[in-house]
Simulated assay, not measured.
Amino acid sequence: MLSQQIIQDKLSQAISDIKNVIITDTSNGCGQSFDVIVVSDTFQGKNKLQRCRLVNNALKEEVAQIHAFGCKCFTLEEWSKLVV
C-alpha cells in the first residue's frame, strides 16, 4: 500500500529545493487516492502543466498503483501569497 511517507520521500529525491509538501489521503486511509501540494522554487518559470509533469514523473510508479492522484504546484512566493 502506498503511504504519505513514500510519496514525500520520492518527491524529496526528485525535486530539488522543496520548501513544503502537503499530502492528503483522500481515500479515508486505504492509500488509493491522494492530493498533493508541492512548494518549490524549482517551479519558477514553468507553467502548470510542466510543474505537474515534474511531480508525475517523480511518482510515476506510485501513481500507476493508485486510483486517483491530484497535484498542485507552487513557488514559495506563490504559496506565501495564498496562505496569508
Rank of each mutant, 00 (worst) to 15 (best):
M1E: 06
L2M: 13
S3K: 15
S3H: 14
S3C: 13
Q4L: 10
Q4M: 14
I6Q: 14
I6H: 12
I7L: 15
L11N: 02
L11T: 05
S12L: 11
A14D: 02
A14Q: 05
S16D: 01
D17W: 00
I18T: 01
I23G: 06
D25M: 00
T26L: 12
T26E: 14
G29L: 09
C30H: 10
C30M: 06
C30Q: 08
G31V: 14
Q32H: 09
F34L: 06
D35P: 03
V36Q: 00
V38R: 01
V38D: 01
V39M: 02
V39P: 04
S40V: 00
D41V: 00
D41F: 00
F43D: 00
Q44R: 07
G45H: 13
K46H: 02
N47W: 08
L49Y: 04
Q50F: 02
Q50G: 06
R51G: 10
L54K: 05
L54N: 03
N56M: 00
N57D: 14
N57R: 12
A58V: 05
K60M: 11
K60I: 14
V63R: 12
A64R: 15
A64F: 10
Q65C: 14
Q65R: 15
Q65T: 15
I66P: 07
H67T: 11
A68L: 07
A68H: 13
C71M: 07
C71P: 06
K72V: 13
F74G: 01
L76I: 06
E77D: 13
E77C: 04
E78F: 03
E78K: 07
W79F: 11
S80H: 02
L82A: 11
L82Q: 15
V83R: 06
V83D: 00
